[in-house]
Design a binder for these strands. Structure first.
Lengths: 337, 337
DNA sequence: GTGAAAGCGCTAACAT
DNA sequence: ATGTTAGCGCTTTCAC
């Protein structure tokens, strides 16, 4: 049996309500009363029961973060940023992995765990624009992360994908590259990281007057290292000439780099490479990898702020907001000639 | 206002208890009654309120995982394994980062979040054997992970560190290496990953009749890539001859590999390298990295099982158990000559 | 400024 | 096999 407010109230000789007021930092309490309560809490080692508080107040102080997979460095780092931002606001974070699986991404939304969190940060990978309406029925406050769904019924925080990819491509063009591979395309995709980033790649080529060549566009399935490696193997096998690679994430860039190095290509002399995400690892590879930093900390901070605003104002439902973070091009050895 | 059991009971024309029984899969319910309740749940879209259930039953179905830092690939992968094992048992996981900071590791133990979880998986990095008594006062069921505290008051799951390091060293000796660097030592440490692994390294040398040379022992602070790189720089600067490296984790091995490659050393021809942890990345570096797989999935599975046993039998307090997982040596290019 | 009472939604006894 | 009753520990009216 644990210590309850009752015990504290009894020891301090006050009522339940007064203890509650002290615990919740209510302003109007006589200093000496407050002190007596604080002492009683101290001597008894009282800790509020958060479950009871949650039941009564309707708030648990817990949010959930739904991401595809923690083993993916980008999401591990995103989770880290989210947990820091949440911690600063006194929130705990339950992480749920969806495995980028459509069925599971939907299941998690309906799952009963949703009943015990105040809000959800939702980073979908398999759902798309056509699923936006499925979010209408979600009553828990939610902030969307990522590029799969725009103009949904909820707040949305993401980076400027097209602009980032354009900047990456311009950077390669700026160091004299003309035959640039786009690694990580998804056929027919318009919305979504792949679609948006390919668009940025095209814009950069257009503005530089470089013709778009479909042989330089490498389509892959998932964005793991393996796929980056496989994609590069296909490029090499095709015999197409190239002198630069814009990979749509760092993992693929690293997989491709390994394949190129095995094939005897020198980076950046023969092929300059730039990735996306600025995962920690890019600082330590050989060569180190230039990349686009998507502003993970800003994403986490803004997402938490939006979520908390929704949580704290359950009545009002202002229209969904959209926040685009600033990105930053980080130049490292893979594009320094 | 959300739908409660009351609403379901009213619609199905049964009592609260019956609804509760159906929801909790109680065995003895007339099939037709059950069906009526199920239908009512369906039409109303009822979801049990987990907070209320938690308050009443004393169990929330949430555990917390306390780890140093998700940005560390080993812990991200451990968290992934833990979440999968927990999910299979219907448990949710709150992750808390301690930053390998002693004060924070202790704070997290006393934190009020502990009041809302059924149990804790605790992976300390800064606490040590001398802090074991601090765990006595923790009433929440707990399973220790890692090597900092043995013979504490709680269950403990870890790998066979000494044996793993011994096997790694023997592997290098087996391919003809005699001057082997031990990368990642902590001066004076006996317990803890560094101490135990250094011991395994010594045992392997002893058994092979190779003299222990302190100039080959490289001490570092944290076990990040940066420290591995710095340690290797010091080794190279010292001018000591060597033909093998046993790194006490993969991150350091990769940092060291990069420095060696920059210095023109070929791996594995000039220096064979083996790490520890089998993080995903080791499969994709150039060369791929041989390593000791610590059996993360087994660690997660056993830890969750132990924890659940403690949670489900709050009365009985059998003595603390200790489980050592099997490790596996994974040979890759960095030790294949 | 503080107290008394009500009840958040659920499950565990104890009936029937 | 199902219904009734009584709280879990807290916050929130509403008094005083």
């Amino acid at each position: 049996m644990s210590i309850t407010m009752h015990d504290v109230a009894a020891l301090a000789g006050v009522s339940l309500k007064t203890v509650s007021n002290v615990v919740n930092d209510y302003p109007h309490i006589k200093p000496e009363t407050r002190q007596r309560v604080v002492d009683a809490i101290e001597t008894l080692g009282y800790r509020p029961n958060l479950t009871a508080r949650g039941l009564r107040s309707g708030r648990t102080g817990v949010i959930s973060l739904i991401i595809p997979d923690l083993r993916n460095a980008y999401f591990a780092e995103l989770a880290d940023s989210v947990m820091r931002a949440a911690d600063a606001k006194g929130l705990s974070v339950i992480i749920e992995q969806s495995g980028a699986d459509r069925a599971r991404e939907l299941e998690v939304l309906r799952g009963s765990r949703m009943q015990m969190v105040d809000g959800v940060l939702y980073s979908a990978l398999a759902l798309g624009e056509e699923d936006a309406h499925l979010l209408d029925s979600v009553t828990t406050p939610m902030v969307l992360l990522g590029e799969r769904i725009f103009h949904g019924p909820t707040d949305h925080v993401t980076m400027l994908n097209t602009e980032g990819a354009k900047a990456a491509t311009e950077h390669l063009i700026g160091i004299g590259r003309r035959r640039i591979i786009a690694l990580g395309a998804h056929e027919g995709e318009v919305i979504g990281s792949a679609g948006l980033r390919l668009e940025g790649y095209r814009q950069a080529l257009d503005e530089a007057g470089i013709p778009f060549d479909t042989r330089l566009v490498c389509e892959v399935g998932d964005w793991f290292r393996f796929e980056g490696a496989e994609g590069m193997r296909r490029i090499l096998a095709s015999g197409v000439a190239f002198d630069g690679v814009v990979a749509f994430n760092d993992s693929m860039a690293l997989g491709a780099m390994r394949v190129m190095q095995e094939a005897g290509l020198r980076i950046p002399q023969d092929v300059a490479v730039i990735g996306f995400d600025d995962i920690d690892e890019t600082r330590y590879t050989l060569p180190t990898l230039s990349t686009i930093n998507p502003g993970r900390e800003e994403i986490a901070e803004v997402a938490i702020r939006y979520l908390q605003e929704r949580i704290n104002n359950p009545g009002s439902t202002p229209p969904p907001r959209e926040h685009f973070t600033r990105f930053e091009l980080v130049q490292r050895e893979s594009t320094t000639v």
